[in-house]
Amino acid sequence: TRVETATETAWISLVTALHLVLGLSAVLGLLLLRWQFPAHYRRLRHALW
């Protein structure tokens, strides 16, 4: 049971790290898009909202 718990903890930390990385890359990508294509971003936002 001790090994299982350790594996579970490792998986949880791995998944958390993955989610953090994905979230950060998504935010960075959005910022980059907004910085590179302001007109396109505004049009996209206008279409979405």
Rank of each mutant, 00 (worst) to 15 (best):
G23L: 15
T1V: 12
L28T: 05
L18F: 14
R34K: 15
Y41S: 08
T1Y: 12
A39T: 15
R34N: 03
L48N: 05
L31F: 12
A47W: 07
W11M: 08
A26S: 11
R45N: 00
H19D: 01
L14P: 06
A17V: 12
L18P: 05
L14Q: 02
T16P: 05
L48I: 15
L20Q: 03
L48Y: 06
R43L: 08
T16H: 05
A17H: 02
L20E: 01
L44M: 09
R2W: 12
R43C: 08
L48W: 08
L22D: 02
I12R: 11
L33V: 09
L31R: 05
L14R: 01
L44T: 05
Y41E: 07
A47Y: 08
I12Q: 09
V27E: 04
G29R: 04
S25F: 06
L31E: 04
E8Y: 06
A39F: 08
R42L: 11
S13K: 07
A26K: 01
V21P: 02
L28F: 08
L32P: 07
S13M: 13
L18H: 02
R45M: 07
E8R: 02
G23R: 02
E4T: 12
L48M: 13
S25M: 07
L24C: 08
I12W: 06
R42V: 09
L30K: 01
L32E: 03
A26P: 01
T7F: 10
L28E: 02
Y41Q: 06
T5H: 00
L48T: 07
R43S: 10
L33N: 03
V21Y: 04
T5N: 00
L24I: 11
G29C: 14
A47S: 10
P38K: 10
L31S: 12
H40N: 08
R43P: 06
V21H: 00
V3H: 00
Q36T: 15
L22V: 12
A6D: 07
T1R: 12
L22I: 13
L28I: 04
T7Q: 13
W11C: 05
Y41V: 15
V21T: 15
E4W: 14
A17L: 12
V27I: 14
A10N: 06
Y41R: 05
W35A: 11
T7R: 11
L22S: 09
L32Y: 06
L31K: 04
T1A: 13
R43D: 08
L22G: 08
E8S: 06
L30G: 12
A17P: 00
H46I: 06
L30W: 08
V15H: 02
T16E: 00
L24F: 10
H40E: 09
R42C: 08
S13I: 13
A10D: 07
R45S: 07
G29W: 07
V3W: 00
L44V: 14
L14D: 02
E8Q: 05
R34V: 06
Y41M: 10
W49Q: 00
A10P: 06
L18Y: 03
V3Y: 01
T1K: 12
W49A: 06
L33F: 08
R43T: 11
L28M: 12
P38Y: 11
A26R: 02
H19V: 01
I12K: 14
L33A: 15
W11R: 01
H19I: 01
L31I: 12
R43Q: 10
A6L: 09
A47I: 08
G23C: 15
G23P: 01
Q36F: 08
Q36M: 15
A10Y: 04
L32M: 13
H46D: 10
L20T: 07
L33T: 05
A47T: 09
H46V: 07
L14T: 01
L28C: 04
L14V: 11
L31V: 10
G23H: 00
L22H: 04
I12P: 01
L18E: 01
P38W: 06
V15D: 05
G23Y: 02
T1F: 11
T7P: 09
R43K: 12
T9L: 13
E4Y: 13
L31P: 05
V21C: 14
L32A: 15
A26H: 01
F37R: 04
P38V: 08
R2C: 10
R2G: 11
R2D: 11
V21L: 12
L44H: 05
W11A: 00
H46A: 09
H19L: 03
L22N: 04
L33H: 05
L30F: 14
V3C: 04
R34W: 00
H19T: 01
A17E: 02
T7V: 14
L32G: 01
T16V: 14
Q36K: 14
R34I: 07
R2H: 12
A26L: 14
I12M: 07
P38L: 09
R34F: 05
F37I: 08
P38C: 04
Q36R: 15
L22Y: 02
L31D: 03
A10W: 03
S13A: 14
A6M: 10
G29T: 15
H40K: 12
L14W: 00
T9A: 14
Q36E: 10
I12G: 03
F37M: 08
A26Q: 01
A10V: 08
R45I: 07
L20G: 10
P38G: 09
F37L: 09
H19W: 03
T1Q: 14
E8D: 09
A47P: 04
W11T: 03
E4P: 04
W11N: 01
L28D: 04
E8T: 10
L32D: 04
L33R: 02
L30P: 02
V3A: 05
W35E: 13
A39P: 06
V27L: 13
A6H: 08
T5I: 05
W11H: 08
Q36I: 15
Y41G: 06
L14H: 04
V27H: 00
A39I: 13
R45A: 07
E4N: 13
L20F: 13
W11D: 03
L44F: 12
Y41I: 11
L31C: 15
H46Y: 09
V27G: 11
A10C: 03
T16F: 11
L30Q: 02
L28S: 04
A39W: 09
L20V: 13
V27M: 14
V27N: 02
V21K: 01
V21D: 02
L30D: 03
W11F: 10
R2P: 13
H19E: 04
G29L: 15
V27D: 02
L28P: 03
L20H: 03
T7M: 11
A17G: 07
G29K: 02
W35C: 13
A17S: 07
T16K: 05
E4K: 10
T5S: 00
Y41K: 04
V15T: 13
L31H: 07
L14F: 00
E4I: 12
T5E: 00
L24P: 05
E4C: 09
L22E: 05
L44S: 03
G23S: 10
R43F: 08
A17F: 09
H40Q: 15
V27S: 09
A6V: 06
R45K: 15
L31T: 14
L20C: 13
L44Q: 00
A6F: 07
T5F: 02
W49L: 06
